[in-house]
């Protein structure tokens, strides 16, 4: 499945975020753009949470997402939060725990309500939730926020492994993360689409 963005326009009042944006994402890619360009808005349009003012988006299908905020169910623990988005709502707790281990998170932290986790632990939970969702497309908005370099490397490695074969769009400013992922970078500096295919 590939994401096809055609002639997409979005403005808030007089402020034009992007106009006639054309983009095709067939494999995992990093979305890079200056602050305020509208990366989050673009991802929200792809998630179906916002309507564009013009143009269309196809090929997104079911979405697994990391939002700008963690958006975890505070009363549930990390494993339960991940299991929540699996097809049966229960997932495979053992396999989920193993995945948390790959992200450097294990032991008692996994049993705590997520309200009591640190920022980095919450972010890793949000990331793993996106990876465990039954999704055709992954849309990841700054998924490494709050992670230390080692945790970021672990998260990038897991993403590389799990995103192969499906379309994924990851918005980030973090150059180390871009390097760790090794994905093509779509640079969105103008208002009309990618200026170059690599960075």
């Amino acid at each position: 499945m590939s994401i096809q963005i055609e002639e997409l326009c979005k403005r808030y009042g007089d402020k034009v975020l992007f106009e006639h944006l054309n983009l095709r994402v067939e494999k995992p890619a990093v979305l890079w753009a200056p602050s305020g360009w509208g990366k989050t808005t673009l991802l929200r349009i792809l998630m179906g949470l916002e309507q564009p003012d013009g143009g269309r988006v196809t090929g997104v299908g079911r979405v697994g997402a990391v939002f700008q905020e963690n958006r975890l169910c505070r009363a549930l623990n990390a494993v339960q939060n991940v299991a929540l988005v699996t097809p049966d709502g229960k997932g495979d707790p053992e396999a989920i725990r193993r995945d948390f281990g790959l992200l450097g998170m294990q032991g008692a932290a996994l049993a705590l309500p997520t309200a009591r986790l640190s920022g980095g632990q919450k972010r890793r939970t949000a990331l793993l939730r996106a990876l465990w969702a039954e999704a055709d497309t992954l849309l990841l908005d700054e998924p490494f926020t709050g992670l230390d370099p080692a945790a970021m490397q672990q998260a990038a490695a897991l993403l590389r492994q799990r995103c192969a074969g499906r379309s994924a769009l990851l918005a980030t400013h973090d150059r180390a993360a871009i390097q760790a992922l090794g994905w093509p970078v779509l640079v969105l500096a103008g208002q009309n689409g990618p200026e170059s295919g690599g960075k």
Binding site: G48, L49, V63, G64, C73, A75, G89
Partner: peptide, 25 residues
């Protein structure tokens, strides 16, 4: 939390799961 409701919408959580994980708490 409206952000959790958006999350449920994006992940297409079934009604009962939304009730249990978001509305009831």
């Amino acid at each position: 939390d409206p952000q959790l409701l958006e999350m449920a919408r994006v992940f297409r959580l079934p009604r009962m799961r939304r009730l249990r994980a978001i509305w009831l708490p």
